[in-house]
């Protein structure tokens, strides 16, 4: 793989071109990573569609795994299938408002409307789409640290 940086005076936007042989899945993953750095995720509509949809991060409520796939839940009730796995999305979304809350889910803290403590050291998050997401014990301290809950 060759990586080249070209600096052009007068260039107003960063443009990233990923060039590869047809069907190279690594190239697709690299493109996804770069897109997420610019605040966007790509998904495919539920039902096996090949139409690719690009969604801004601020409209993503949560990302969950089900049926061995990662599903992006957006404002407006859409569910999109991500070409990336959950741990790849977690890496790509590091430094954003997304936080891992269990082995199956990432949530966008901007869409967390309420927090409720549960026994056994868990938390229940009320999301903007009225869904309840449970924070597993092993992820509670990370989440509390992000929000500023000290005990």
């Amino acid at each position: 793989m060759n990586v080249r940086m070209i600096e052009e005076p007068g260039c107003r936007e960063i443009e990233v071109t990923v060039r590869s042989a047809p069907g190279d899945s690594r190239a697709a993953r690299i493109a996804e990573r770069v897109r997420s750095m610019f605040g966007r995720l790509v998904g495919y509509a539920d039902g096996g569609s090949i139409d690719r949809l690009v969604v801004p991060l601020e409209s993503v409520i949560s990302i969950e795994t089900a049926e061995k796939r990662a599903w992006i839940h957006t404002v407006g009730g859409k569910r999109l299938e991500s070409p990336m796995r959950l741990y790849e999305l977690e890496d790509a979304l590091e430094g954003t408002e997304f936080v891992r809350v269990s082995r199956q889910a990432l949530v966008n803290l901007d869409h967390v409307m309420g927090i409720r403590p549960e026994p056994n050291g868990r938390l229940a998050l009320k999301m903007g789409n009225e869904d309840i997401v449970i924070v597993s014990r092993s992820y509670v301290s990370d989440l509390k640290g992000r929000i500023g809950i000290t005990h």
Partner: peptide, 24 residues
């Protein structure tokens, strides 16, 4: 007893969350 304890903590957590959103 458990309900009272959890409710009290829930109010505090929601206040921290509201502060977090306001800061954002």
């Amino acid at each position: 007893i458990i309900g009272v304890s959890l409710k009290k903590r829930g109010i505090e957590y929601t206040e921290r969350l509201d502060e977090y959103h306001a800061k954002r």
